[in-house]
Every structure is written in C-alpha cells, then in structure tokens.
Amino acid sequence: MVRFILSKLLYLVPTFLGITIIAFSFVRILPGDPVLLMAGERGVTPERHAELSAQLGYDKPVVMQYFDFLGRLMQGDFGSSLVTKKPVLAEFLTLFPATVELGLCAIIIATLIGVPVGVLAAIRRGSWFDQVSMTAALVGFSMPIFWWGLLLIILFSGILGWTPVSGRISLLYFFPNVTGFMLIDSILSGQKGAFGSALSHLILPSIVLATIPLAVIARQTRSAMLEVMGEDYVRTARAKGMPPFRVIGIHALRNAMIPVVTTIGLQIGVLMAGAILTETIFSWPGIGKWMIDSISRRDYPVVQSGLLLIAALVMVVNLIVDLTYGLINPRIRVK
C-alpha cells in the first residue's frame, strides 16, 4: 500500500508543475502589457514602468521569472488582489468554506438519492420505476443547470415564497465566523431561527448543484448493480437460499460500490464547474463567484492564483479518490 501511495504521489509532481506553468503563462499570453495588467495601473511613465517591472520581477529572463513564481508559491505567496489589495490566499481561504458547504450538501443529496434509486432501478429492471427514474436521470444529465436554478427561483422564491433568492443567511443574523460553515456556525451562535435561515438559503443552490452528479451516480449505480448481479457468486448466494435483501445488500451492493465510489469522487471537478454557475445565480459568496467576478473585473492576480489553487485542489481530491479506490479494491494496487 505504501508503494501504491508513493507511486501515486510521484505521479502528481509533473501534473502539478504543468498546472503552475499554465497559471504562469496565463498572464504572459494576455493581450496587453503584463506589467501593467498585474500592477493594475494605467498610463504610467517609463520610469514608473521600469520600477514596476523590477518590483514584479518582469525585468528578468522568463525562465528565472518562472522559478521566482514557483519559489513564491512554495512560501505560500499567491500575490494580492488588485481590487481589494488583500492576499489572494487569504481571500481564497475566507470564501472556500462557503463553496465546500455547498458542494458537500450537493454531493450528500446526490449520493443519498442517486445510490438507492440506481439500486432499485437495477433490481426492478424494466419496471416503470426503472424507466421513469432512468429517463429522469437522462434529463438531469442534460440539464443546463443555470436555467434549472432560475426555474427553481421562479417556483420556490417567486410563486411560493418559500426560499430566499440569494446569499447565505438573512441579514437579521450576525454571529462570529467559527468554522466557516453557516449551518454549524448558526447552531453555535445559539440565535433562534438562524439555523433555519441558513438552511433555507442553502437548499435551492444545493439541489441545483446536485442535479448532474445525482443523474450520473444513479446511472452508474444501476449499471454497476446489473453487472454484479449477473456474477456467479450472486447466483450462488441466491441458490444457497439467502434472503434477497442480504444478497443485494451484502454480496451485490458492496462490489457494485467500487466503481460508484470512483464516480462520486470524479464529480468533484464537475461540482467545481457547477459551483461557478450555481454561485453566480444565487449570489453565493464562494470561490466560483469570486473567480467569475475577478475575470470580469480583470483582477488578473486573483484569476491566476485562483486557477492554480482550484486545479491543485481538484488534483488532491482525485488523489484521495484514487487512494480510496486502492483501499476498497486491493486488486488495483498491484497494477
């Protein structure tokens, strides 16, 4: 297992370097003078330009600039935003819990609904439940989620008036930021109604973000279950006279879960892309909206480091998924 982990870790190094090269080149291939773009100044005198250039290290050869960039990253220096002047890493860490809270809720919803639906559809193959749920899954898979979010807002916020349209919590409540997760902080604050408010803000965005992963998980669970249920050991278990519940729950489901766990893990990238759209629609103050806002404000240091941080994050999550996969399926460790 140790060798397996080490080989996976070693495999990440070139990918990570590749990510830093892309983030590094990003600013240099933008149309316009990178010095002015990164300093956020305009119409400067040649002296000021030289000063900025030296300050940012742009007067050195490109290769040296790259190593400087890498060196700063290793020290945790991701540059500062042109708009807020705050360090990018600090901004990222402030907004990150909001996205994690949203993403976690979405993946929990998707798993809790998707897996049972997939299992049931596989057991009752060809039944009306199978057909309806798999049609629904295909619709979900094809869903433009930015539109889906708007429809839910029209229905639940506009017509029914059940949920708020945007933000994470009502302005009536104010409490210290302990964990960064609104659901937990609102309970810790002990204020009446705060938790309900946080939950009602979270529910629609979570559903929207969960839609595509839910569809993918349900489809994947169904086909994994069908495959496993055709195996000899399941037939043997049945022939032994085991109750169907045990056959499905213990023999089939456990083995069918192996590809499903990978699928769930691979949804992280999908979730990150979905978070950009979902956070924009619901004005959810997370890193997806932060990236969009930074792109439209031409806050290039934020775009550069944000891109890098998000890609590194997805990479680490994928690594964890790979390791989990090795843990639950010993066969792939030897490969």
């Binding site: 070139p14 990918t15 590749g18 990510i19 090269i21 892309i22 990003f26 291939i29 933008l30 149309p31 990238g269 999908v270 990150m272 892309a273 950009i276 759209l277 990236m291 969009i292 792109i295 775009v303 891109l307 998000i310 890609a311 997805v314 990479m315 994928n318």
Partner: peptide
C-alpha cells in the same frame, strides 16, 4: 499524456472561462 493530464486537472468550464478571458 502528461500534458493531457494537466489540461484534465482543471475543471473544464473554469479553464474554458479563463481561456476566453485571455482570448477575449
């Protein structure tokens, strides 16, 4: 294949967005 891995490490919509920001 390493280069392909790097491209795949980015969430697709985010990379597309940043590329569009570069290209206009």
């Amino acid at each position: 294949m390493r280069v392909m891995d790097v491209i795949l490490a980015f969430p697709s919509l985010l990379l597309a967005l940043v590329l569009v920001a570069v290209l206009g």
